[in-house]
Amino acid sequence: MVFLRPNAHWPAHETPHGNYRVERRVDGVTISTHDCIAEETPVALVYNGVAHTVMMATPLDIEDFAAGFSLSEGIVARAREVYDLEVIARDNGMEARLEIATERALLLRAQHRAMAGRTGCGLCGVESLERFRAPVPAVRSTVGLAAGALSVAHSQLVGMQPLFHLTGAVHAAAWCGLDGAVALVREDVGRHNALDKLIGAVATNGSAFGDGFVLMTSRASYEIVQKAAAVGIAVVAAVSAPTGMAVRLAEAAGVTLIGFARGARHSVYSHPQRIH
């Protein structure tokens, strides 16, 4: 049994992890020590001066998160439609202020949805089943990768998750070349947040989404496939299982969905022609 007490000198919105006092109780023995705990904080996304949503996220790589969320949610169609991006620390969280193309801002206001984001949530605030069922663009990429690339990516990713190794509480999303080499990694308590951060980082670096694949340390759920398809990522691999809805969406959207990608083993659930 473990009891935690926060150490007040760690402001949650300024660091991705905090130092907490903990009493570990094992077989009747109490040990007083400290634990490194992953933080999450409210992040307000504001477009052209208008608040859009508040998401709970790990306060790390918030610029990437704001850019990636904007792309994966269809608020902008391409990175160059984000003219400016500033992250402000507040006493009660963080605020990402984005200046986007006027026509995109007008469309966002017309389609506005007030979302209250939670860490494990990927469909926060969708106001109707019709909106939820809105189609995603089909991914028509003919990209292919050798099965061995998945093993390479998994072995590299293990050593590229500093926040996970400190806290044990976060997911990672990795951008991998077609040979499996891991180029970028982003971490967050929320798996969909980690993917948004990765999408933002890939776009900011000027890489093409058709030139690689994503490896997630989480399960492959609906919103992971939805976000990947929205930006044109053709291959999504996860170390854990997919959900049935994720498999159906991947099949319909032209995404190759891979589960249980661990070492030399993996299971391909949709569009296996891309794996050689």
Results as ranks from 00 to 15, higher is better:
176 C>N: 10
9 H>F: 00
87 V>H: 01
122 G>Y: 03
236 V>L: 07
105 A>S: 05
185 V>Y: 07
95 E>F: 12
110 A>T: 08
104 R>E: 02
182 V>D: 02
215 L>E: 03
39 E>Y: 05
231 V>K: 03
10 W>K: 04
109 R>Q: 15
211 D>Q: 10
142 T>G: 12
123 L>F: 00
2 V>K: 15
1 M>W: 12
139 V>S: 07
87 V>W: 02
50 V>R: 11
14 E>H: 11
202 V>K: 00
75 I>P: 04
185 V>E: 07
196 D>M: 12
257 L>A: 07
148 G>L: 03
255 V>R: 12
267 S>G: 05
132 F>A: 11
216 M>I: 08
106 L>N: 13
239 V>I: 12
49 G>Q: 11
183 A>N: 10
164 F>D: 02
18 G>C: 09
47 Y>G: 01
141 S>K: 04
13 H>I: 13
178 L>F: 07
174 A>R: 12
149 A>P: 06
203 A>Y: 06
169 A>N: 01
111 Q>K: 11
115 M>D: 05
97 R>L: 01
56 M>G: 01
263 G>V: 02
255 V>Y: 11
80 R>G: 13
39 E>R: 04
85 L>V: 14
137 P>V: 10
91 D>H: 10
268 V>Y: 12
170 V>Y: 11
34 H>N: 10
70 S>A: 15
20 Y>Q: 10
123 L>G: 02
269 Y>W: 01
81 E>N: 14
122 G>C: 02
76 V>T: 02
173 A>W: 02
11 P>V: 09
218 S>A: 13
156 Q>I: 04
158 V>A: 14
173 A>E: 06
168 G>C: 13
194 A>H: 13
161 Q>H: 13
192 H>F: 03
164 F>Q: 08
195 L>M: 11
270 S>N: 10
94 M>F: 15
109 R>L: 14
177 G>V: 08
217 T>Y: 03
163 L>W: 00
255 V>D: 08
135 P>K: 01
243 T>S: 06
17 H>P: 07
2 V>I: 14
102 T>S: 08
269 Y>G: 00
256 T>I: 04
239 V>D: 04
192 H>T: 00
114 A>N: 15
152 V>M: 06
248 R>A: 09
166 L>W: 10
96 A>I: 08
274 R>N: 09
55 M>C: 09
215 L>S: 09
104 R>K: 04
75 I>C: 03
229 A>V: 10
145 L>D: 08
173 A>L: 05
241 A>H: 06
153 A>T: 09
212 G>I: 09
80 R>H: 14
